[in-house]
């Protein structure tokens, strides 16, 4: 497998993992909470390194998830005091946690092999060089294996809880009456976001995770009114971003993660303007062109 293919596949796996979760985050209006959570996993990674001196996936995921839960609970607690609005609570908690992580990284950078730039932009170009042997003598990129597991986990969660997620997303009050615990499901989603973020962190950086969570889902939301289609479209847009972004980055020799984010954003702009139902231009066109008399129904 050539290095380019490995990079695109890893990015595509990130896109799949994020695309499965993103639509629910956007529809439940907790998109920015997912942004906060994906920043808050950084101190988790650092803490696990400081305490157990390891970067094995499992402890790191547990540590990151712990900090994600801490972040969400902290935001909830601040909001519950009634002293500030939820946006202010988010804006207080996640910079503080991210700052802790950044200080940890700068202080113990030698041991952790994790520098600041890679936490922001990611180092997807280096992914192919770090491979594991799964048996049979063929090396597979470590990040690809981790991300494949995360994709399977997310897929399992979304399909098993499809009905519950759907009900609580569109009608939380109904969900609560039939004892579906909307808030618990929201937290479960955010823990999944944290796990996805930490798995994707080293490969693609904090920013691409947020981009892949929010932008493809927002694009899909402009294009369809059905949840299944929306999830599928979100994953598809993410893959478009991965493939086209990689091609762009190679052509112009720039940041791969950045180019992928840019392509996703371009998809969003196109959908915003040209979506058949909700696009700005199509709506204007529909308004200016005289409506034809409806065909008589047979």
């Amino acid at each position: 497998m050539s290095d380019d293919v490995v990079i695109v596949v890893v990015a595509g796996l990130v896109a799949t993992a994020c695309g499965l979760l993103g639509p629910f985050l956007v529809l439940r209006r907790i998109a920015l909470l997912s942004d906060a959570v994906s920043h808050a996993v950084l101190p988790g990674i650092v803490a696990v390194w400081l305490v157990w001196q390891t970067r094995a996936p499992l402890p790191v995921v547990v540590g990151a998830a712990a900090f994600a839960v801490l972040c969400v609970l902290g935001i909830d607690a601040l909001r519950a005091t009634g002293l500030m609005a939820s946006d202010a609570a988010i804006a207080l908690v996640f910079p503080a946690l991210f700052s802790l992580g950044v200080l940890g990284v700068t202080r113990y950078a030698d041991g952790i092999h994790l520098d600041l730039d890679s936490t922001i932009y990611g180092e997807i170009a280096f992914v192919p060089f770090d491979s594991v042997d799964l048996g049979g003598g063929v090396g597979v990129a470590r990040a690809a294996v981790t991300l494949a597991v995360v994709v399977l986990l997310n897929l399992a969660m979304v399909t098993l809880l499809w009905k519950e997620l759907k009900a609580t997303t569109f009608d939380p009050a109904f969900g609560a009456t039939v004892r579906l615990r909307p808030q618990l499901l929201s937290r479960l989603l955010l823990v999944a976001v944290a796990v996805t973020a930490v798995a994707a962190f080293e490969a693609v950086g904090a920013i691409l995770v947020v981009t892949m969570l929010i932008v493809p889902a927002a694009t899909a939301y402009l294009l369809t009114d059905r949840l299944v289609v929306m999830v599928a479209l979100a994953v598809g847009v993410g893959w478009v971003g991965a493939v086209a972004g990689h091609a762009l980055a190679v052509t112009y020799d720039s940041s791969i993660a950045g180019a992928m984010g840019l392509v996703c954003s371009a998809c969003f702009v196109v959908a915003l303007l040209l979506s058949p139902k909700h696009g700005l231009l199509t709506r204007r066109l529909r308004r200016t062109t005289p409506r034809e008399s409806p065909a008589p129904r047979p």
Binding site: D35, L208, V210, I214, V215, A218, G261, L262, C264, S265
Partner: peptide
């Protein structure tokens, strides 16, 4: 907010 943030930062 999320879309604008990620788009501009990617750029």
């Amino acid at each position: 907010i999320g879309v604008v943030l990620s788009g501009f930062f990617s750029l």
